[in-house]
Design a protein around this nucleic acid. Structure first.
Lengths: 205, 205
DNA sequence: CTCTATAAAGGACATTTGTCCGCCACATGA
DNA sequence: TCATGTGGCGGACAAATGTCCTTTATAGAG
């Protein structure tokens, strides 16, 4: 659920170290900062060096859908650069986040001249398709309870803390449904002592 | 909704024509033939030369989710080749279909040695991510009625005929819900004469 | 033309999910 | 300590969707 790509990150870090005047900059954002806005144009591609972000689509009916949580080594803005289109998603930091900002012409050059880079990019894109399709299918065809329990497990394994609001947006449901389903899950487990108070869940803000 | 990529197709056709011993074969399948099976390994990448296919995930609970309808110039099996994994989806022909079968080692070689090919591939993958994410968001956050009317319009524009069963699987709903929503849509339009009998809808088989 | 077999459509009820709103816990300041 | 404001949770009802099964439409045989 929290995507990462450590190999790609270390590739970029090596590239920066070994290239004089790479034009790639480091930037840091505070938690809760929206550094990419849906509908706007961007001239950088970002790679996350550290921290967690959420990437989400805001629909015209006012609802948000979280496409993915992105962590170390994940790339932002590459679709927009490849297709020369405006941003599809908003991207907002959850924790404090440091990114490499790669100007789009440098990105284009890397694709043209650096087969290793291109290979990483192909890997990254194909992984995304797989995850997006698999998840769409899963969320459409299984019950919410099943989806939520899977999400909780993933969150537990990844050792990250996502607000209820964000989890609901990830599942594409209202907070009310989220709470209801969560309660019925916890009731079934009868793990009041073990889980209810161990902080899998976090109040918003 | 019906995806195509005519430029990519003509690139491959040119490549076949100009390359002696390209190792790429033409194959034809009858309607309703499942030529890629989820969970199996494939050693070819297919590009559709002509016809329409559906690409769908069968979940363990017996339900199917149609990931996409693929037409001319669309590629099948590239994710599996890039990641060296077994097939994610089933692919079944809807009409009679002709494909180019590209052995995986030829595919790998094209990526390694043919930047134009790689560029097409990057375009194709990024388009897929965009479409998959956008659609997942849309289907999660809007009402079925809205989604269905959009689907009918798309189908009408693409001039293709998809069975009700397939449309329901595309929308991730039961046929019962599909019929119900369709009826309420048609009632609202009061276009009984214009639409009900003009063959937007097709009985299964 | 009628009978029958089969597929598609729709009715009825159960379950799931969304919306609206009130209640409660907690924090803050007096 | 108590009053008060705020955010989060859950009750109640409405709307949407799934399941099951009956009804209707269609095609083919006699």
């Amino acid at each position: 659920m929290l995507r990462t790509n450590l190999q790609f990150l270390s590739f970029i870090e090596t590239f920066c170290r070994e290239t004089t005047d790479s034009k790639i900059l480091l930037k840091t954002f505070k938690p809760g900062h929206r550094f990419v806005r849906q509908g706007e144009n961007i001239t950088n591609i970002y790679m996350i060096k550290d921290g967690i972000t959420k990437c989400f689509i805001s629909e015209e009916n006012g609802k948000d859908f979280i496409v993915a949580f992105l962590g170390k080594g994940e790339v932002i803005g590459e679709l927009e650069a490849l297709q020369k289109i405006e941003c599809l998603c908003n991207v907002e930091t959850i924790s404090e986040v440091t990114v490499y900002a790669i100007p789009d012409y440098v990105f284009a050059e890397l694709i043209a001249k650096n087969p290793a880079f291109t290979k990483f990019l192909l890997q990254e894109l194909s992984t995304r398709i797989i995850q997006t399709s698999t998840r769409a299918s899963f969320q459409q065809l299984y019950t919410l309870e099943y989806g939520l329990s899977k999400l909780l497990k993933l969150q537990d394994e990844a050792q990250i803390i996502i607000s209820k609001e964000d989890m609901a947006a990830y599942l594409g449901i209202s907070i009310r449904s989220f709470n209801r389903t969560l309660k019925s899950l916890l009731d079934k487990r009868k793990l009041s002592k073990d889980h209810k108070n161990t902080g899998i869940l976090q109040p918003r803000k």
